[in-house]
Design a protein around this nucleic acid. Structure first.
Lengths: 192, 192
DNA sequence: AAAAGTAACTAACAATCGTTAGTTTTGTAA
DNA sequence: TTACAAAACTAACGATTGTTAGTTACTTTT
């Protein structure tokens, strides 16, 4: 276990508070108190509240972007790629569950370049996913429904997984991956 | 079109702002300005910012609770009930898209009785849904996976539908219902 | 015409916000 | 032991927050 820098400790502490109450409802004094220091002391390690948020969000966003590139580079079939994306999402969720809350709920409080950069990464990610689905439909591997509905169903489930994973935390990660892939690929109805 | 009371206008205006920036990032002065009046004037119609939030959220929460009761009362098969729940969710999303943002993202800023009451309604709703799934599995209608995974997959998709519905708003509601039911019941993979 | 009610206004409040300046303590290296 | 840097502290700033008090203008009811 690598020892964290003080900045990393601040970001980690803040992310837990952001997850519970949201970026705007957490004050610098709240963050400082959770670390047992005063608010002004935080500024020895970070430039401001904004930096905490952007560090947190962009770290996770880059993780997703890299994950998608890895999956695309494998050049397997569309259905296999979707399987891999689901598994990747679950892995990232387990490792970055606090950051995911900020990424989902507080990204709009980013500013300027960081906001633009985040939106860009998100759009690219969705577009890559959409293309995989469209290739699957064109190849006859995937049912010919609205690609947008398929994309949205899978993605919104994966994006809010962080809310459930710890609440029902007893679920084994591999069972989760297995069942979630099965639900989306084959549905829930028992075939005769 | 029924004419709105002034309080309803305030809640409607606020809900649009809450959707974009979140409860805590919207000030009473923001809400007032959006209505072309001063912040203090809002207090002629509402008791405070909290009342705006709780009015907004509880209205939609009751809608869901009633919808679930209607579906349960029909006593159709578990799979048919799940179909109906998906359709109900889509209908509510179309009619209350701003309120849904607050319900999903800002419910934790409710206080006291209203917070407790909301959590209770949400737990009951999830438990009812979970029981339907379990009955479906017991009856052999639904595949024997972790009920929690099935519940979560469907519910998180439905809960974040409000984010997508207007962005890709060109989608017909009936096509949406049809494709979304198909995705969850039968999956996305083409069977041979 | 008088009275009551509705809904806006101005002005200000105490509290809290993110942040800065300047100072003191703490730990490490020479 | 001295010197230096890291990281904490106190105190305060200007801005903004939700809210209250008191007042004014317009409309409806008596």
């Amino acid at each position: 276990m690598k020892t964290l820098t003080r900045k990393q400790e601040i970001v980690a502490t803040a992310s837990k508070l952001f997850k519970e109450k949201g970026y705007n409802a957490v004050s610098m004094r709240d963050i400082a108190q959770a670390m047992g220091i005063k608010a002004a002391s935080l500024y020895n390690h970070i430039s401001g509240k904004q930096e905490i948020l952007s560090t947190l969000i962009l770290e996770v966003a880059i993780e997703f972007t890299n994950g998608m590139q890895t999956v695309l580079a494998e050049e397997s079939s569309p259905v296999q790629q979707i399987e891999r994306i689901i598994e990747m999402h679950i892995d990232i969720t387990v490792n970055y569950s606090e950051g995911l809350a900020a990424l989902n709920n507080d990204w709009m409080h980013l500013e300027n370049d960081e906001l633009r950069s985040f939106i860009r990464m998100r759009e690219d990610y969705e577009e890559n996913f959409r293309q995989i689905i469209k290739r699957g439909i064109a190849a006859g591997e995937i049912q010919a429904r609205q690609p947008e509905v398929i994309l949205f169903s899978i993605l919104s489930t994966l994006r809010t997984l962080y809310l459930w994973y710890q609440k029902r935390g007893k679920l084994d990660v591999n069972v989760l991956k297995q069942d979630m892939v099965a639900v989306f690929l084959h549905g829930i109805v028992n075939k005769l």
